[in-house]
Design a protein around this nucleic acid. Sequence first.
DNA 1: GTCTATAGCATGATAGAC
DNA 2: GTCTATCATGCTATAGAC
Lengths: 203, 203
Amino acid sequence: MLSTMSTPARPLEPVADTAHRLLEAAAEAFADRGFHATTTRDIASRAGLSPAGVYVHFASKEELLYQLSLEGHVAARDMLRSAADGASSPTEALRAIMARFATWHAEHFRVARIVQYEFANLTPEHRDAVLGLRKQIDAVVRDVVTSGVASGEFTVDDVPDTTLALMSMAVDVARWYDPEIKRTPEAIGAAYADLGVRLVTAR
Amino acid sequence: MLSTMSTPARPLEPVADTAHRLLEAAAEAFADRGFHATTTRDIASRAGLSPAGVYVHFASKEELLYQLSLEGHVAARDMLRSAADGASSPTEALRAIMARFATWHAEHFRVARIVQYEFANLTPEHRDAVLGLRKQIDAVVRDVVTSGVASGEFTVDDVPDTTLALMSMAVDVARWYDPEIKRTPEAIGAAYADLGVRLVTAR
DNA sequence: GTCTATAGCATGATAGAC
DNA sequence: GTCTATCATGCTATAGAC
């Protein structure tokens, strides 16, 4: 019976299964050309499948978008939470979340573009699910700003407005980032940690 | 022969001609749904025309996009230049350009979205033409930052990086702005003038 | 689980009457 | 300059063989 087992011991670097390859192909295509400009034939051929092969693994093109959007939002949220939790002060927390958020938007600019720009192309149900994650992401940043104001380290005119501006700077990295440029994602992150601190500092 | 004249004295509030109505219809549709998700039937019916009626005025859907993108970039550039030129110091210039740029991205968020997010859907020739305007827009902001550094009013780590971050904040307004929200475009502009100054100020 | 073939429909753009 | 009708194409998704 052993020979009929379908799940052998997982190697350390598993070969990407077909569903995973399709997600990667869709991520590239959606980020490069946008959801509506991407055809299922595009995705299928990038993954080495016929057009029909996609539908064994995903019910629709939107389902691929949803999976990518969901995974991207979860990854961003978890990364921000761990950055904020590991810091010893609001200032250090702000530096950590800005650095990691900006770095993430550069390093994963394809998924980040899907997260930021393709949200409106989800079905209403899927949009609602992702909206919950977006609120959690917002909350991480807002809580850091609030705690810095409370401790007296930060001086801001308005917490929600400042939160939004901080996120705007980092989110916009996904728009202009190009893997061809010289600046590394880490250098971008370091610069944005500094810029973030400036935004919460009054003279 | 007077009765055959096609251009009577222009009234103060001219009725929008058909080409203009089409541009407005396309702006709404492209901003709401994106270039590729918008159909020419969409645009035609919003403008009260049959699908074929579009092609009397514009050679293609992309031509509509190009006109909107071009007009939007020119408007943004001219607005920024006049804001910078009218200021008495780099700090006042920065406040003026940030306020007006942010206000513009809220007030004209539909055209602004087209300007910022549909650039990649232009033909290569049209992209090149618009790229020149984008460089001019960048130059206005960069020159203000440079002059502030020269005068000693600003302290920045890196002029191009700071220029980009300033623009990111204002550009991102078009992504999150919603005419339903309470904040007025002017209030947003005022807040971004302050945030801009913070970004060029070190403790 | 992958393929070939195609259904069923929407799209951008054009032809030609008025 | 606008219409109706339509072309030619491309799209998402499905059917059914293997």
